[in-house]
């Protein structure tokens, strides 16, 4: 196990974890505040990645895709919340599962109709297409550094927004105890709309950021949906901080496992999840667990 290799895998793991955080923070907030599990959350990630593919395909630079994914995601999230999800907050789990399963099928079909079923690579932006020497004999991709930076920036802004703004504290109250929103006389409809739009925007942003690293392909959201579920189970319910630490842990375990134990790597995160369920079923980072 050589040092540069390990360092690169550690950085890859952190970067993978931060992308997972962008996806799973939305998932956990939507679940915590509205009590809905959105199985289509992975499809939103897929839509973000394909958006980056379309934007760069038109000759525009990738960095344009990032605000496009955020804005498009917020808009799409708002439409979905208003049009569909709002009616399902009080419905059975089964109804919610099937509604969001239907959305997966429809998003995938829309993608297939508009863009086909091929694999496509998305070029790394020319400006960042080089490696930064970190130590002697070890250089790391500048684009991956940029992804790290964007993720940290977004995570930081999100924590600030949640901790320091009125709306943020309302969202935290709602995530911890949904009935608090009513008791405090807050506008639940507005909070729901904001949370859903934010979660969708983050998932699509993650997709757009990941597109040059992963290339884009059908059903790419599926794997990310499931690994995000593992993050939420490991991290604990409705807590953004739990999602953050859980995502880093899972990102590292997944990446290092694939690098050093390729035979069993597919299983490593599930074994970790099983361990957490046995040891602390409420999640590693849940308050009062």
């Amino acid at each position: 196990m050589d040092f540069p290799g390990l360092a690169a895998q550690l950085l890859n793991g952190v970067q993978h974890g931060l992308l997972l955080f962008l996806i799973s923070s939305g998932l956990t907030l939507i679940f915590g505040v509205m009590g809905v599990i959105n199985l289509a959350h992975g499809s939103l990630f897929m839509l973000g990645a394909y958006l980056a593919f379309v934007v760069t395909g038109m000759g525009a630079p990738l960095w344009l895709a990032l605000p496009a994914a955020m804005l498009g995601g917020a808009l799409l999230g708002a439409v979905l919340e208003r049009g569909l999800f709002r009616r399902f907050y009080t419905r059975d789990h089964l109804d919610q599962v099937l509604l969001t399963f239907a959305l997966i099928l429809l998003f995938e079909e829309a993608r297939s109709l508009l863009l086909g079923n091929d694999f496509h690579s998305v070029p790394v932006p020319a400006l960042l297409d080089f490696s930064i020497p970190v130590t002697e004999g070890f250089a790391y991709s500048a684009y991956r550094f940029a992804v790290l930076a964007v993720c940290i920036l977004v995570a930081g802004l999100m924590f600030l927004g949640l901790e320091r703004t009125r709306l943020g504290s309302a969202v935290r109250a709602a995530a911890e105890k949904p009935e608090m929103v009513q008791l405090l006389g807050l506008d639940a409809r507005r909070i729901h709309l904001v949370v859903f739009a934010l979660g969708t925007a983050l998932a699509m942003l993650a997709g757009a950021l990941a597109a040059p690293l992963l290339s884009v392909y059908p059903n790419m959201g599926d794997g990310f949906l499931i690994i995000s579920f593992v993050v939420v189970v490991v991290g604990g319910v409705g807590s953004v901080a739990g999602a953050f630490w859980g995502a880093l842990l899972i990102g590292l375990v997944d990446t290092l496992g694939k690098a050093y134990l390729p035979e069993v790597a597919g299983l490593s995160i599930y074994v970790l999840m099983a361990g957490v369920l046995l040891w602390r079923p409420a999640g590693l980072f849940a308050r009062g667990a």
């Binding site: 599990i37 789990h93 499931i226 579920f229 593992v230 189970v233 599930y270 369920l277």
Partner: peptide
Amino acid sequence: AMALRTRGFFFLMTTLAFGQM
């Protein structure tokens, strides 16, 4: 034995994850 340590949506997520495993 693992998944039933959780309830509701967490049960749903753990069964999905173990199923995929």
